[in-house]
Design a protein around this nucleic acid. Structure first.
Lengths: 206, 206
DNA sequence: TAGATTGTTAATCGATTAACAATC
DNA sequence: TAGATTGTTAATCGATTAACAATC
């Protein structure tokens, strides 16, 4: 129980979390492994296997209670609390991220937005006022931030990540195409839709 | 050689593609499996193993030629051509996607942007003028589009995907949090940064 | 009862990794 | 030659899946 999940299991559980969150919003009280399979493209047997490793959450012939399963998975992933994150970049992408309900839905709060451009500092984006990059260290430490999201152009991305790391950030989401050099204790997740698209195309064409 | 790649191999090869594209931009002529490993978090042995299944691309004691390896992987993934995609949504996120160099870098062209809001139709976003959703079918068929990107709020996402599917689109990238109902021959890739973040946090906390 | 869906087994297949000879 | 890095082997481990009894 106290064992660490494998990378694969943790990744799948978080996908189930997403489906359950949306299913609940749509008013679905119950959901079957087959339904989760359709939305995640993960085999239904594997879903049941993943879940049954932690308990008997379902009812045979009926399925899983959406609410209850959501809570169970949150417990397993230890993500029941609130988490503060910092956003660097108040341009179009930064604005889109700051205004999206997608983080709040999962207990994640954007606690600060930083930007180099003096014109943007002080402006309102989402529910926040944009802070200067100069204050990144102080504000991030103050608000206990260990996750940073980089939404700046590629040529500013390394500067942004350096500032975040100085401020104690350990997990970085990189929405630029730049390769970031970071110390070994910092996790970098780079999102590149173009690369995902080439991958998807391969299976369409092959 | 003509065999179909497994899902895992194709995913990893496309990550190598991203690193090589950036490394080339940074002027690196040569790269080692160890360097690719640092940027992708994929084990160096596995990288060499993946590549050596298709040929001997490297030089012992030296590494791989960036250019040459990039071309080889493009051949393997059959992504050497140009690809046209459609974007639905001309809001902040749509604007950010349309203006990003990330697609062009990989031979992907955003060939049309569609939007419901009449105020936005006709406006310029990136290099394109926004078209009405009413013209989605005609324009998409005309420009041979089989990939669609959804950058609209969750409550319009199902409508957007329905229109795309009517127009013959087979691969959909969903940047809303909505669950989309689609026929079996359509691939949906949903991107949810919040869910990825919870997954990353698990390994940080555990 | 009849139908549906879970929980679990058993078998297979692919991913992962350490180790090291080959060779640049 | 000495150092570095590939290509490859061999062994292990986890993922995947079909099948089906249990049971709601």
């Amino acid at each position: 129980m106290a064992e660490r999940l494998t990378v694969g299991v943790a990744a799948r559980l978080s996908r189930y979390l997403q489906v359950l969150t949306q299913a609940r919003k749509m008013g679905k009280d119950r959901i079957s492994s087959q339904e989760i399979a359709e939305y995640t493209n993960i085999n239904a047997t594997q879903i049941r296997r993943d879940l049954s490793a932690f308990g008997r959450f379902g009812k045979r012939g009926v399925g899983y209670r959406t609410d209850a399963l959501l809570e169970e998975i949150r417990k397993i992933l230890r993500t029941q609390g609130q988490h503060n994150i910092a956003l660097v970049g108040a341009g179009r992408l930064g604005g889109a991220i700051a205004s999206s309900p997608i983080f709040a839905e999962h207990g994640i709060t954007i606690a600060a937005i930083f930007e180099n451009d003096p014109e943007k500092v002080g402006q309102r984006v989402g529910n926040l006022y944009v802070s200067s990059m100069d204050d990144l260290g102080e504000i991030s430490r103050e608000r206990n931030i260990i996750v940073g999201v980089i939404a700046v152009p590629a040529d500013s991305a390394q500067n942004a990540v350096d500032s975040l790391i100085d401020a104690g950030v350990k997990i970085v989401f990189n929405y630029s195409e730049a390769l970031l050099d970071t110390p070994g204790d910092v996790q970098v997740h780079t999102s590149n839709p173009a690369v995902e698209l080439l991958y998807a195309l391969y299976f369409h064409l092959a």
